[in-house]
Every structure is written in C-alpha cells, then in structure tokens.
Design a protein around this nucleic acid. Sequence first.
DNA 1: CTGAAAGCGCTTACAG
DNA 2: CTGAAAGCGCTTACAG
Lengths: 352, 352
Amino acid sequence: MHDVAESAGVSLKTVSRVVNRELGVSADLVERVEEAVRRLQYQPDVRARNLRQSEARAASIGFAMVDVANPFFSSILRGIEEVARPQECLVLSGSSDGDLAQQDRLIDTFISQRVAGLVVVPSGDELGPIADEIVRGTPVVFLDCEPRVHSSDLVRSDHFGGAVSITRHLIDHGHRDIAFLGDDITVFSAALRLDGFRDAMAAAELVIRPEWVVTGHFTPVEWRSVIFEWLQAMSPRPTSIVTAQNFVTVGAVQALHSLGLQHQLALIGFDDVELGDVVEPGISVIPQNPRLLGRRAAELLFERIAGSEKPPVHEIIVGEIIARGSGEITGPGAVAAPPSRQRSKSASKATR
Amino acid sequence: MHDVAESAGVSLKTVSRVVNRELGVSADLVERVEEAVRRLQYQPDVRARNLRQSEARAASIGFAMVDVANPFFSSILRGIEEVARPQECLVLSGSSDGDLAQQDRLIDTFISQRVAGLVVVPSGDELGPIADEIVRGTPVVFLDCEPRVHSSDLVRSDHFGGAVSITRHLIDHGHRDIAFLGDDITVFSAALRLDGFRDAMAAAELVIRPEWVVTGHFTPVEWRSVIFEWLQAMSPRPTSIVTAQNFVTVGAVQALHSLGLQHQLALIGFDDVELGDVVEPGISVIPQNPRLLGRRAAELLFERIAGSEKPPVHEIIVGEIIARGSGEITGPGAVAAPPSRQRSKSASKATR
DNA sequence: CTGAAAGCGCTTACAG
DNA sequence: CTGAAAGCGCTTACAG
C-alpha cells in the first residue's frame, strides 16, 4: 500500500479511499491509483483492515462439524458457502469426528482467527470448556442440535417427528419387531430420533428389546461389519430396522445384501442416500435437506453478525417419507390391504 | 492483551512471551500472566500476530475446488484437514462450480486473507487472470490436474492409465461399441481420461462414434436425464459405457435402471460410488483415493510453505479395477472363456 | 530476566 | 477533495 501511494504520488489515505471505492476522490487520482495498484499487483490485506475496522463486514465464518467426508455435512457446507459467497465471506471448516476435545480446539482456533461467527453442529450434548465461553461472545448458530445449557439460533430437521413417522410406517406395514440403529445418544439429534422411535413404539404398545437398539459406530465400513455380525447373532431377529442416520443406512443395506436378507427385513432410514433409488429393493427414507439447513443457518448467522438482537429462532424443517420398497416389505401383522393412511406432512418450515 | 498486561502488572512484551511460551520468564510472572489470561478470557489474535511475524507458521490455507457437495471433493478436503489440523492450521474452502471467473474470485479472496498456501483443483485448463498472478507468488499445489502454463507440485490419479484400463476391460469382455460419458474436456483430467479411452479404442482398432461421446453436464440429476434421453434416442445403441466421473456414474446407473437396461449394457466407471457394491449388478469401477490425494497435496504444500525449493513434484496415484458385475456383462465379441488376462496394477505411487 | 519503542498494513477521526 | 497523525493487536530489535 505504501508503495502504491508513493508510485501514484498520493497519500496512504487516498489509496485506501480508492481501494474501498469511497466517494469524493477526483477522477484523476482514482485513475493514477488504480494504475499503480495494477502495476504493483497490490492486494489489500483483509486481516489488517479488520484489525482496525472491527465493525467491518465479516471476512470469514467458521463451520464446526463431525465429518466433512459425510455427504450430510458436506452438503451443509455447500449451503453455507452459497450464502457466504456473495458477501465475499470465506468459510473455515473443520471436522471433530465426534470428539468433544477436538471440537473444542477447533472452535478455539476459529476464534484466534477472529471469525465473525460460527455455525456449529455439536458433537455431543455440551460444548467443551473453551467453546462454551467463546460462544457467549460470538454470534453462533447451531445446526442439527443444540447443546444443553445454550440458547442460540438453531436450525434442524424434525428429528423426533421424522423418527416417529418412519417407525409408524413400519408398524403400519405390519411390523412389531423393530430394531433401531443409530448414532450415540450423547448427540442430541440422535437422542431425539431414538425418543421418536420409542414414542411410536409405545403408542402402538410394542416392546423394544434392548439388544435391538444399537448405537455408537461411525463409518459405513464399521457399521457394515457391526450390523453383519449383529444380524447373524440375533435370534430371534427383528423383522424390520430403523436406521437413524445415512452412514448407518449404507452399512445396514450392505450387511443385509451380504446376508441375502434385503427382501426379508424391512428397512427405513433417516436422511437420504445416493443410489438409494436404484438398489433392490429401493431404500425408503425420510430425507433431510442438508443444503437448505446450511443455507438457513448461514442466513441467520449473518443476521446476527449484522447485529440482530431478536430472540433466538428455532427453525425446524420437516420432511416427507420417500417410499421406495425397503420400507414397504410387510411384517407378520400386515393386513390384506396395505394401509391406505397416507402420512404426507408437507415439506414446510415450522418456527417455534 | 493490554488489559492482561495491566492486570498482571507487567509489560506487553512479557505477556507476549508467556503466551508464546518463550523461555526466560520468571516463574512468578508466568504465573501472574496466566492467571490474568484466564480471568479475562484473553485469546490472542492470530491475524495481528501474523501481520508482523510474516515468516510465522501457517494460520490457514485455502482449498479451491469444483463442488464440495461432491464426495470426491469433500473427501479430498477431509484429507487436507487431517494434515493441517496437527499444525493448528485452518482450511478455507470454496466451490467454483466449474466456473473460471468464480474460481478466480475465490483465489483472490483467499489471498486477501493471506492464506499461507493453496491447494487448487483447477476448474479448467487455465487459471483466471488474478489467480494466475497470485499463484506465482504463493505456494500452491495442484490437485487432479494442472493448468497449462503452470508448473507446481501436482498430485493426481492416473487419469490416462485408468481410462485405458477400464476401456480395455470392456474390450476384453467382448465389447466393440463403447460410449464415453464424462466431464467437459476443458478440465484437463477429463481430457486425459478421454485420451485414455481413445487410446485404448485405437489400440483395439475400434471406431469411436461421435454421438457416443457425451460431456459437459454437472449434477447426478442432470446426468440422469441427459443419459436417459440419450439412451432412448440412440439407434444403434452402444453395448457398453465408460463413465468418467462419479456423478456421471450415478446418473448413468439411474438411467439404466429406469430403462431396465442395467443387465444389458455394460458399465464401468472412474472413481468409486457409495453403494456401488449393493446395486444390481454391482458397479465396476477403477477407484480413486481422494482422501489420500488430499493428504499428499497438503503435505507437499506444507513443505513448500516451510521453504522447500526442490523441483516440482508430480505424484500420480494408480488404482486397480474393482469388478462388481456391471463391467463384466459380456459383449457380442466375447469368447467362450472370459479373458484370463488379469490386469492388476498394484496401487502404488509413481513419481515422475 | 524485563521493558520501551517502532513497525506490520490498514483505518478512523480530524484538520485543512 | 486530500492528507498527517494515531491506533487496531500483536511482534521484532534493541536496551538495560
């Protein structure tokens, strides 16, 4: 900048004015400065700018998630990016692998880089000690679920309602012996989905066998082998399965196919899965809209960054079951005619 | 920081020393400063630090890609993250959607935030005007392919060799009428894959019909409908298809299933696809290892950031065909016994 | 072992 | 319309 000023024969302030397109600089000087900027390939340093101009527009925001290699999270990131891009705001991101300490470190690092705000998909039901403090001083929007003691903006799918829907879907198709496979319930969203499952089962006066509730594994590969062995060991077997997360669904479908059980056991998942329409039978799911989740979270975050002080918003996005076959395999209690009751919640947003 | 110094009754410099764990501060002062840091919840500002200390360790690196919602790219990002994390380096990322101007803006924004280096998956065969200049002054590692006029470190899959392998795989299974569906050839990696296809076809003295080469679409949804219509319109139809990219593979498999052709037309893809083992027939592919690609690119980048001046490295990662069924559907020229010739390149790395 | 001064690249608040 | 000074939060280079 100094060189530019010298080369154009003006003061630093004038360069600053031209670079920031402030009004009230003579055309002549604008011309000279711009020429010098080009010639010297000058690039303003956003960090230095924001050092002084603290109310400046956001240069970057941080996104803490569990695992960017999971399409659910990378689609969220895509949605966040779409909102941030027009503002020339960059997004820093990091995966915690569900580890609280790592999430804590990540958020700490975000702050040391002075992000303007954070979107956080919490890895558990509370934040680490550092994040906990930070979050009180920085705009933050929670995604998917909210840590206990906090109250910020929150955008998430209807975990409870969705889990109730898919469980009831199986019950409506004659199933009484239903297993639940999902994330560890220290993750609040996972806990809500399990609650939904329990609720639907209780409402139908069905019992849940403890050995039919499996939680706490991570990758599709891991789930595949866990479910493979679990299916072999179980006797009696459930007649149907609720898979509460996309990687679980993938692992379960692979295990069922390995065992040749895909046409015997019904399966319905939470969150959609690539090629779920092509597998035989097609995989029935209640989809999420991760891109929309990300977009809404980012929009709310930018409102906060801009200074909005309205009370915390909780936005819940409701989905609708996509029946592709695996969830419509009937159980022993199925009536002759398949239940006509269509539960078609429209894909709308509810704010409460 | 000022407050901390005052509160601990020491100078700024002493606070700086304690925060940076420099040696030669009396235990007493260290104690007092740390206490004040805790009490005031002081977080050093990495941006301000790097402003002065320009040879400092990297605070952030940038990753420019086509679309983070594509698992190929999000897995790369995961790999980069894994290398950056131990250094407390954050990664900024952004998607260009294959648009050169957007990629240019993205890289520009990275630089204005003074990233220590860049990993770039180019959206085309050249960089935009801004990026072009920037890249000459900032450590950069290209991933997947390298823009023409540049020469930096490069990590990529063996596009040409992989395409030759999968094309020959179809030829070995008796196919003569082979279609090629892939990315627009302005992307260098796509061009290399098409070259590989052409090369294998020529070596077998087979002709390529222009209408059997389709390129330039983006999402699985788009590919699905394009391929659906293309298959309906084609007469005669090819007996087999090379899909040169994961989203193309997904779209093609969906289209084939919609038309009930999945057992008639052979298909083999470049890059693996989730649930490709479960679909009927299983999807034969030559996989990539995007996480490893990302990891290696990041490792090379950090070497450059640390000042390495060795000549540019080109690292090429070779894969091995996974035969799952779709690629082994035989064509009219198949001999009685399937070809025994096993082409099993070991998954090793070659440097040239 | 500790600190006062100058500077990183920019902006703000003021003067002319 | 333009500029000289002070400051953002930190560090470097020097002195004591």
